[in-house]
């Protein structure tokens, strides 16, 4: 699991009074370079101090040696004159000012790809099927017993499996390649996708994880007979190929599933949490509409 810092560091690019503006193309190139490095950027024309917030650690501008002092909510912000520097040099300057503040840099070896389920609150009915399906504690519930994406960074990158169990087509993965999972409008045909869910169930001969449990158990038995880890792994891969194709679950995710016992334990735990949430919803409804706030 990746632990996420609260905010990505922010850079203010200041072009107000006391600073010379960048030429348009140069400004675009500099902003792109900072964004591709992972920074947030505010282009401010007036009030460098007002543009800074507590994530801001540096203000850069062409100050011609007259850099202003800026204090953000919680920290003194460094101000750097970047006159005469190329965009790459400005990024280097900003990197130096960042010091040890964490930064999630796209493409870096240790970066986290922001891949996680996003709920369409207009469609979600809080049925908790996704919560009971997910083995990785991505989902939780809020104080009103409504579904909440609790731990986005627990999600397995490129795995959109839970979107397939949602009867309301309410689960999106904005970085998925196709609609409606990517957030595109949901068509009538997609709503009839409940069929797809049933087909998957039929294909798997039960629910997905039950099937996975079986497959893993079979692979394990064979492993004990054959005493060959390689063969067992190869077998497990073959067994899971169709599951991966049918449910669009990346094979690495299936290969990385925990032991059958652990899967069983996690499923039972998730089912229990889902049941508790549903009971909480029912109790709140019983107490009248004031007890449960509507979805926004």
């Amino acid at each position: 699991m990746t632990t996420l810092a609260t905010r990505q560091p922010r850079v203010v690019l200041y072009e107000g009074s006391g600073a010379e503006p960048f030429a348009g193309p140069e400004r675009a190139e500099l902003v792109a370079a900072l964004l591709d490095r992972g920074y947030s950027v505010t282009l401010a024309h007036e009030g460098a101090a007002a543009a800074a917030d507590d994530a801001t650690f540096v203000v850069v501008g062409r100050f011609a040696g007259q850099a202003p002092q800026v204090t953000a909510a919680e920290a003194t912000v460094e101000v750097h004159d970047c006159s005469g520097r190329s965009p790459a040099e400005v990024v280097g300057l900003v990197d130096g000012a960042r010091a040890d503040r964490p930064l999630n840099t796209p493409g870096a070896g240790d970066s986290w790809k922001p891949w996680f389920p996003v709920i369409d609150p207009v469609r979600c009915t809080n049925c908790m099927q996704c919560l009971s399906f997910c083995l990785f504690d991505v989902y939780g519930v809020d104080a009103d017993h409504r579904l909440r994406v609790e731990n986005p960074s627990n999600c397995k990158v490129n795995c959109p499996a839970c979107s397939r169990v949602c009867p309301e087509v309410a689960i999106m993965f904005p970085k998925y390649h196709a609609g409606p999972i990517d957030g595109a409008p949901v068509s009538q045909t997609d709503v009839g996708r409940e069929k797809m869910k049933i087909d998957i169930s039929a294909l798997l001969g039960g629910d997905l994880y039950a099937r996975l449990r079986e497959r893993s158990a079979e692979a394990k038995n064979r492993f004990s007979r054959e005493r060959s880890a390689d063969q067992a792994l190869a077998e497990r891969r073959r067994c899971l190929t169709k599951l991966a194709d049918a449910a669009a679950i990346p094979r690495e995710v299936l290969d990385a599933l925990p032991s059958p016992e652990e899967i069983q334990r996690k499923s039972a735990e998730a089912a229990k949490r889902a049941a508790a949430a549903l009971a909480g919803q029912a109790a709140a409804e019983g107490m009248g509409p004031a007890a449960s706030s509507p979805s926004t």
Partner: peptide
């Protein structure tokens, strides 16, 4: 010539529940 804000990745920001 107008000011604006730019973020590397709104998904990343949302996952962090960035107060901004």
């Amino acid at each position: 010539g107008r000011g604006f804000e730019a973020v590397a990745d709104l998904c990343d920001m949302a996952a962090r529940r960035d107060p901004h």
